[in-house]
Nucleic acid binder design. Structure first.
Lengths: 243, 243
DNA sequence: TAAATAAATTGACGATGGTCAAATCAAACA
DNA sequence: TGTTTGATTTGACCATCGTCAATTTATTTA
């Protein structure tokens, strides 16, 4: 009677645990049927590439378990890590909606299970259900707002301030919610990836971490961060922030 | 019998010269009627602010004549110039589609005529015509791709390489089309604004321009740039670019 | 046209942060 | 457990770029 298996995840879109957190929450049963038919599940191990910059768009990816990093690399091999994609997030929709090839690559950072929905299915759903389009419009528009904010931050803030901000964002998204007081948190990323999220080098990342420790702002043990007082991070980020 | 006046521009959406270049090109006559009713024309002088960061979204702006700059400023007064908006472009749609307040400000850089379409009208059109939503999806998605590219460039390229890239983009968008050979072009921006488009200071901008001149890459006379060979700019931007 | 205001440039200086190489640490594996 | 491999840290160095102040050049305005 078990219609889903903890080792294999959901068998279809109807029983999918993460569906309510995706854009597909606006679909009716008939549309879900269509979605389910256009769907294939794939699994990736850490380091495996889901798509490459320049590849033609294969569809939209729904992350069920694991974590994916979206990277953009230039001709000289320099790269930035743009996004972390976690369960309930959709991946690859930008290229599909823009009608372009991928302009970034996606790589599994943990063992990851993903459903791929092919392009014709997504196009058909978008053409028939305006609410789905509006959902995506909201998502892409908010994402654009965040990207623009990042452009400002990278242009005006120091590496240290950008790192403080990154910590706040990571804790807010993936950590326990606690506005103030001491916080412990496990970073989901290597030093190298932390660096490429804020547009710097692993060496500068190391030195920034060391400096923050000596200043008593945070303590780092491997990927564990201990922050005595979250508010100090906010002050790092906004020098003239006051209560 | 003249249904439009060169000094006042189009009187309505039906006779609007720039409509075909906007998202509204997918609307039928009934929808145009609605659009026209939700529309108010406004004029701005250089320096006048159209909307401020933090303001609630007032609608979507259609630029008929002139030029608008979209800026983002932080608490310390540092700012970046994110976009130049020219006739046929739409403005302010990001906030509207994200359902957020404005996260950037818009300011006229030249005498500018703009039609403002109120939020309910845009919402209504989006809800009824899926093609309009798809148009906006494409626009926002491409914009997001460009923003992500900018994040990579700002993180990995020098001020000089970023400026070379900016020149190429400006010439491509607002200049005569010529892939190779000498090009003359009038920059639409002050040194200060050029600087804030690539996330640097006016001082560094000046020095970069001076260096480029002494290297024979380009000559600057006020806002006029003369580039003996466009290809050299491409090489500045992609060090290992070859034909 | 002269005076006033703003924009752009130049100079001097220093800090931030990138690069390269070496050392240390951690983790995977035989 | 010893070994190998990769990740992280540290050191030394210096180029790029930002900051501040002063000057020159344009642009307005009276």
């Amino acid at each position: 009677m078990a219609d889903q298996n903890p080792d294999q995840g959901s068998l279809n879109c109807f029983t999918c645990q993460t569906r309510d957190r995706t854009e597909w929450c606006v679909l009716d049963d008939a549309e879900l049927q269509l979605l389910n038919k256009g769907r294939v599940t794939k699994e990736y191990l850490p380091g495996e590439v889901i798509f490459h910059e320049g590849d033609p768009c294969r569809g939209v990816f729904c992350l069920e378990t694991g974590m994916v990093g979206v990277r953009k690399t230039d001709a000289d091999g320099n790269s930035v890590l743009l996004y972390l994609v976690t369960p309930g997030d959709t991946l690859g929709y930008r290229a599909m909606l823009a009608g372009e090839d991928y302009r970034a690559s996606a790589e599994a950072l943990e063992p990851t299970r993903i459903c791929v929905i092919d392009v014709p299915t997504v196009r058909s759903l978008l053409g028939h259900n305006p609410a789905l389009g509006l959902r995506y419009l909201k998502r892409v528009s908010m994402s654009l707002g965040n990207a623009e904010e990042k452009i400002l931050h990278n242009a005006t803030l120091s590496v240290r301030a950008r790192f403080a901000h990154l910590l706040l964002v990571l804790i807010d998204k993936y950590g326990e919610k606690s506005t103030n007081g001491p916080t412990e948190f496990e970073l989901p990323l290597s030093r190298h990836d932390l660096a490429s999220m804020i547009g710097t080098t692993p060496e500068s990342m190391s030195r920034t971490i060391k400096k923050m420790e000596s200043d008593g702002v945070a303590r780092f043990t491997g990927r564990i961060v201990y922050i005595p007082e979250i508010e100090t991070l906010v002050q790092e980020f906004e020098p003239d922030h006051f209560v």
